[in-house]
Design a protein around this nucleic acid. Structure first.
Lengths: 228, 228
DNA sequence: CGGACTTTCTACCAGATGGTAGAGGGACTT
DNA sequence: AAGTCCCTCTACCATCTGGTAGAAAGTCCG
């Protein structure tokens, strides 16, 4: 009830954005502006992931890049479109890395382990990605549906696979959704954790991440392994 | 570099707020305005915890309460002061609940378990608290230092206790900070988790929470129990 | 009643925000 | 050289933001 005005606005914008395109120069991937477009995405990822969507102003973003705000709005229809593009690219990176793992030949547990390691590797290489994920997974975030549509198929595939494994008895019977959710929130928790450490004045070491990963793997093993 | 202006502003405001008081009507806890003040806090907690600090406008907040924005600003010096008050009250509730547990007679492991259960119980009773925690623990949040100063002593006490237990050998030797951090991010992860579930169209059941709690307890046991 | 104090309101403002309109320049094609 | 397309810019705007000033109304006390 507090944010009635805001909500109405959100709905209207969502509809409009679906009709239009997110990226103005859709299709064109070469040309002089391609580099600018990437630079904008990089800066936006950093800003959205740290100070958040609402906390980011297009003017500040542009100033940091040494360009005018209007240049940003030339490449991306509006602020929301920019967020969409950032989410798409990031989710795309993650999806690509995961699909690569899925191509490999591996037994079930090896595959699970490989997936977890991949996610953590990507998260370590691109720590900003975790911040973005955290921001976007917030209730009412303008990009929540977008993230879902990008990552959704992959998650559905994972759940279908788990269901199959359970039917053949190679995997212990549990709720796939719950397991995936736990895994997900563990990874996102990492983002929080790293930031809290930093706020406490400690530079996060690899130790934090390793501990977390081991913990997650142990959880998955005891959840899935039919032997235990 | 992107948010130079914003950062400078933040620092200035922090200094000013430390000098002034957060609540205008400090000391007075009775009177007609007391109820209004509480209602404002309730609404602010909900808004800050869901759509975030930056996403919350004082006008919307007031409109939701059927009052004018200026009434809010009469009770709390400014927006930041309001956030401070919300954080203080929430952290106070949690601290009180934890201190109560600490008063009880209990062996070491029982006490740890009781603390964990208390935190989860409070989180379940006041789900908004988790959202707030999530918002406030964001890097550069205006209230991060405030949270630290409210909860800090309790955390220091916990760490001191753990160190003592380790010296007497009743607790396995590990890094107390890391253990507390893990516990913390597990709880905050709950907030994320619940919201993601809701976004996926599922009403979160107690099951999610129970799973998470069991997981955390197992982690703590294997981290701390000298027998294992 | 009359004054003091608390609370809520109306009126207003300076600055920032996302966004539009349209000019100008550079590069490439014909 | 002229035209076309891509890109970035200046100029401007409506709206919203947090915040201030001060009036009006209620309440309490002598």
């Amino acid at each position: 009830m507090v944010e009635t005005t805001r909500l109405r606005e959100t709905v209207r914008e969502t509809v409009r954005d679906t009709v239009r395109e997110t990226v103005r120069s859709a299709g064109r991937t070469t040309g002089r502006g391609a580099e600018t477009r990437e630079r904008i995405l990089d800066a936006a990822l950093e800003s959205f992931g740290t100070i958040g969507y609402d906390g980011t102003s297009l003017d500040d973003l542009a100033a940091g890049l040494g360009i005018r705000k209007q240049t940003i709005l030339y490449h991306y229809v509006n602020k929301r479109g920019l967020l969409g593009a950032v989410v798409d690219r990031s989710a795309g990176d993650l999806t690509a890395a995961l699909l690569e793992v899925l191509e490999e030949e591996a037994t079930d547990w090896q595959r699970v382990e490989a997936l977890v390691r991949t996610v953590f590797r990507v998260a370590l290489e691109q720590p900003l990605l975790l911040g973005l994920l955290r921001e976007v997974s917030r209730p009412g975030s303008p990009a929540a549906p977008r993230l879902r549509s990008t990552m959704g198929p992959l998650l559905d595939r994972a759940m279908a696979w788990m269901n199959r494994e359970m039917e053949t008895g190679r995997m212990r019977r549990t709720d796939p959704q719950l397991v995936l959710l736990s895994a997900y929130s563990t990874v996102v928790g990492l983002a929080t954790e790293i930031e809290v450490l930093r706020a406490a004045g400690l530079e996060p070491t690899a130790r934090t991440v390793v501990t977390r990963r081991r913990e997650l793997l142990r959880f998955l093993r005891t959840s899935l392994d039919p032997q235990r």
